[in-house]
Simulated assay, not measured.
Amino acid sequence: MSRARTVLVIGGGAAGNAVTILLRRGGFAVDLIEARDDWNATAGSGITLQGNALRVLRELGVWEQVQASGFGYGSVGITAPDGTVLHVARDIRTGGDDLPATLGMQRPRLQQILIDAVRASGASVRLGTTAQILDQDANGVSVRFSDGGEGRYDLVIAADGLGSSTRAAIGITDKPEPTGMAIWRIAAPRPAGVTRTDLAFGGPAYIAGYSPTSDSTLYAYVVEDNRDRASIPPATYADEMRRLACAYGGFWPEITQHIADPAKVNYTRFDRLLVEDSWHRGRVVLIGDAAHCCPPTLAQGAALSLEDAWVLAQLLTATQSWDDALFQAYYERRIARVRPVVEASVQLGQWQLDGVRDADVPGLMARTMTMLRELP
């Protein structure tokens, strides 16, 4: 009887958790390590999941929990800064007609659902642990862990995020680049009338928006020029976000009164990353933000990462030949889908930075989202 193939997953975010669940289902022995001691110390307050993300979450077996925890909706409103609704557009159902077009939920809740599914899968999990690639050959990879232990695996999957140390360690030199924008986010109680995402363009911020995340909560955000985060004292985060948010009408006054605790405000710059060359070196392969990242202008970051996990797991379980041809097939299948999303997400922000008033924003969004209806 042949032994179960062994996989080390580095990083316990959405991509790492998803690929762990799928590979365990395929019968592989999976060790997942996460650098943080607190596996659910998740930055940010909420997440917007388009249908193609929900499609993968259904494949993971967690859709019912996600559906019960979040708030599904099917349209987006465009408003003036004073709150006047200018246009309401139907969202494209990128996950198929049997799933909501969009679902908002609290990011820590999504992470906990995935954590529970990883635990239930029987994967070995080690927190507060990092790994160093020692060497590899055609059959596997040797690693040393931060606690001094060592291991040998048939495959290492680097899901260690935008600043991936594994990416750099295997000789991939691509690094994230700032796009020029940054975002303030906060979780807040949901006004009863908020039943979709509304986006206000103009005013002191590029975008002021919110998304319902449950029957009682939402997350709100304002987008501005990127500033050096080190120059903004954390104690002023609530003041900084409130200064921008208070210029907006509609539901914003009710939301703004909850922007009070600076510890609950998250500030993050927008980055762009797309590893253009293959996403593997030998038996070490990148997924998720370690391979690509885009501004949240299309709300596709988590969706693309989840798709990576789904596609890679499909390929790994379909054959015994874990070789360059397989990993190149993974790259080619993903880059054709990821590149237009990254480019469109960056372009939408750049048009705002450049003050382009006649840009075909609806057309670009519709073309990109329609493409995502196809299976990854």
Rank of each mutant, 00 (worst) to 15 (best):
Q320A: 09
R93N: 12
T179Q: 08
V342Y: 00
G70Y: 09
W63C: 00
L316S: 10
L244H: 08
D215V: 03
T130E: 03
L326A: 14
F71W: 08
A168S: 05
Q352E: 08
P176K: 02
A15N: 05
I78L: 13
R243T: 05
A260F: 05
V284T: 10
Q352N: 05
L372M: 15
V88P: 01
F71S: 10
V346S: 00
E150K: 15
I170L: 12
W39R: 13
I78M: 12
C293L: 07
R281L: 15
D98S: 02
G249V: 14
S345A: 12
I92R: 06
V346E: 00
L110C: 04
D225C: 04
V285E: 01
L199K: 09
D31C: 11
D239G: 07
R269E: 03
W279V: 12
R5P: 08
V76G: 14
G11D: 07
C294G: 04
W351C: 09
D135M: 11
L218S: 15
T6V: 09
G301V: 04
R107W: 09
P204M: 03
A168C: 02
D116T: 08
D261N: 07
E240S: 10
R281K: 14
W39E: 07
R283T: 11
A366H: 06
L353N: 01
A14C: 07
D160G: 13
G122T: 03
R144P: 14
G51D: 14
R357A: 12
L134Q: 15
L315V: 04
A117V: 01
T297K: 01
P191F: 04
V342L: 00
D225H: 04
Y267A: 03
M371P: 13
W279I: 12
G288A: 05
E64W: 01
L57W: 06
P296S: 05
L298D: 01
A15Q: 06
G209P: 15
S305Y: 02
G44E: 12
T217Y: 14
L23E: 07
S121T: 08
L306K: 06
V222H: 04
D324T: 10
L32P: 07
Q350H: 02
A192W: 04
R119Q: 08
G74D: 15
I259V: 03
Q112S: 10
